[in-house]
């Protein structure tokens, strides 16, 4: 199972990099989204993939004896998903504003914006 997911992660990463190398600002944001999906899956996989049930405990059991999914990567990924959402939304707004300011959607037109005089 891990092999298939690993290939999926690699494909996501490749697509993300390809998009980030494009000159259209839109594509750059798409690349960012693909990369963040790849990163989330990478962390998720690192805990080992099991199709067993989620980590819900009932009072009778003690947790460590059960064969369950690893909860720690899940918690980390949960945080990462939400942060990733913040990043994407902020970049989208920034992109919109930057497009208005520079008047182009070509990222190569953006490299003179911080020059003095």
């Amino acid at each position: 199972m891990e092999t298939l997911i690993a290939i999926l992660i690699g494909t996501l990463f490749a697509g993300g990099i390809y998009c980030m190398l494009r000159r259209s600002i839109m594509k750059v944001v798409i690349g960012l989204m693909l990369l963040s999906q790849a990163a989330n899956l990478l962390v998720f996989t690192s805990g080992g993939l099991t199709a067993q049930g989620p980590v819900f405990l009932s009072s009778a059991e003690t947790g460590s004896t059960l064969a369950q999914a690893d909860p720690l990567p899940q918690a980390l990924v949960l945080t990462a998903i939400v942060i990733g959402f913040g990043v994407i939304i902020f970049s989208l707004s920034l992109l919109l504003k930057a497009h208005q300011a520079v008047g182009s959607d070509d990222i190569n037109a953006f490299n003179k914006t911080d020059q003095v005089s």
Partner: peptide, 21 residues
């Protein structure tokens, strides 16, 4: 060229994930 670069990068990550196991 970019396609080549990104595919190499993707392959690297796949190998990395597999090795990480």
């Amino acid at each position: 060229i970019d396609a080549g670069i990104s595919l190499t990068a993707g392959a690297m990550l796949t190998v990395l994930v597999l090795k990480a196991q």
